[in-house]
Amino acid sequence: MPHPRPQFDTDVAGQENEETDSAFGGSIRGSETSTLDSDILRYRVENGRTYHSYAIIFWTLVLEGDLYSAPIKNPQDVLDVETGTGIWAIDVADMIPSAIVKGIDLSPIQPSWIPPNVRFEVDDYNKEREHTNRFDLIHSREILGTVPDWVQFYKKALDSRFSALRPGGWMDSTEPLIHINSIHGPVAKDHPFNIWTTQFATISEQTGLLWDVAPHLKRWMEEAGFVNVTEKVVRVAIGKWPKAQKQKELGAWNQLRLDMGFGDFTERRMRNVLNWQNDEIMILVAKIRASVQNSKEGLFMHLYHVYGQKPGE
């Protein structure tokens, strides 16, 4: 049964709110990056690593300088699942020159100029393929909406026939909770983020791919057979409304990350699965970006870091 589409006021031009960080629907990239670029240079000096994008700065800040949560030092064989641009794999390779880091993805969008200890392959981690590698660490981040069966996904990481961990190796997963909250109380039912969440629930129904996965990672990992499974939940602001400097800085990076990435993330799925038209998508995205830019709303999100260990032999 088709789901009714929400009705939007299409007259969005010229609206502005003095509490937002930029004009309605416009990107905050220009206003924010001049300040945040100096922070990139500072983190490069302090941590001795090269940061390749705003997203990796955000995640590194969330993890307080680390690149993963699992309690393993200097892993020597590392797999990055759905590596995307390969940024995480490159940073791990820079951090641990003795490690061999492999990134797999369906799209060959990774750079050609990479450290010698990185290898990228076009591959689908959902397929049952044999690999000769045995990994100390398998990493995944924000792969929601791409895994048909998470328990089977984790079981593959334990199975010696596939991209498997060595006995004692670690699986490290990070996913955001897709439901956005506010310090002022429950977000209104007609809030653009709630509309977005409802539409992506429909996308899940039609594709069989789950988006609301973060709260279930620990249970799924345990069901697959991992031991020493640990869940850490971090609350992160969207915008610069927190008074504490660290949370304000995290909120600014999160705001920029969402503002720059939300359109591309949403557009393809709503067009291909829900058959939304471009103007419908643009209006919803514009309203979401306006909300992201409005620090007065006091929005925040939860990030789930879950890691588990393959039983030793």
Rank of each mutant, 00 (worst) to 15 (best):
Q152F: 09
V227F: 04
G48R: 12
L41V: 12
V78K: 01
I288K: 04
I195R: 02
S98A: 10
P2M: 04
E313I: 10
K296W: 06
R289I: 12
H52P: 02
P4S: 11
S27F: 08
E82W: 08
G298A: 08
Q309K: 11
I183C: 10
D94E: 10
P4N: 06
S27M: 06
V187C: 12
A157F: 15
T202R: 11
S163G: 08
P176W: 14
D94Y: 05
N228K: 10
G26T: 12
G239I: 15
M270N: 00
V292Y: 03
V285I: 15
S160I: 12
Q110C: 07
V273C: 00
N133G: 04
G103P: 00
L250Y: 05
D77Q: 12
M282F: 02
A70F: 08
K73N: 09
E82P: 06
V12C: 06
P108M: 02
D124N: 13
R141L: 12
F135L: 06
Q152R: 14
G30H: 13
V233Q: 04
E231F: 09
G65R: 04
S173C: 13
E82N: 10
V92F: 09
L284W: 06
V273Q: 00
V227D: 08
L256E: 01
L217P: 06
S27E: 03
V92H: 01
S291P: 03
F153Q: 07
E18P: 01
P115S: 05
R49Y: 01
T33Q: 09
I90P: 00
G263S: 07
P71L: 13
F58T: 03
A157H: 14
D94L: 05
D172Y: 07
I183A: 11
L61K: 13
N181T: 08
A70K: 08
W150T: 02
N278H: 10
P186L: 14
Y43W: 12
T50G: 04
I281T: 01
Q277F: 00
D9I: 15
H305W: 11
G103C: 09
G168M: 12
I203E: 00
A70Q: 06
G261C: 07
I96E: 01
V101C: 02
R271K: 12
L299W: 04
Y154R: 04
F193E: 05
Q309I: 11
L177Y: 07
G168S: 08
D212Y: 15
S107N: 11
I109M: 08
Y43F: 11
L41A: 04
I143R: 02
Y43K: 01
N275G: 00
P97V: 13
L165A: 05
F162K: 07
Q152L: 14
R134G: 02
D212W: 15
E46Q: 13
H302R: 13
V236K: 04
H52K: 14
F262P: 00
V227I: 15
G86F: 05
M95H: 02
E64P: 03
D149I: 10
D39H: 14
N126F: 11
W196D: 00
Y68G: 05
G30E: 14
L210H: 13
E142T: 15
E19T: 13
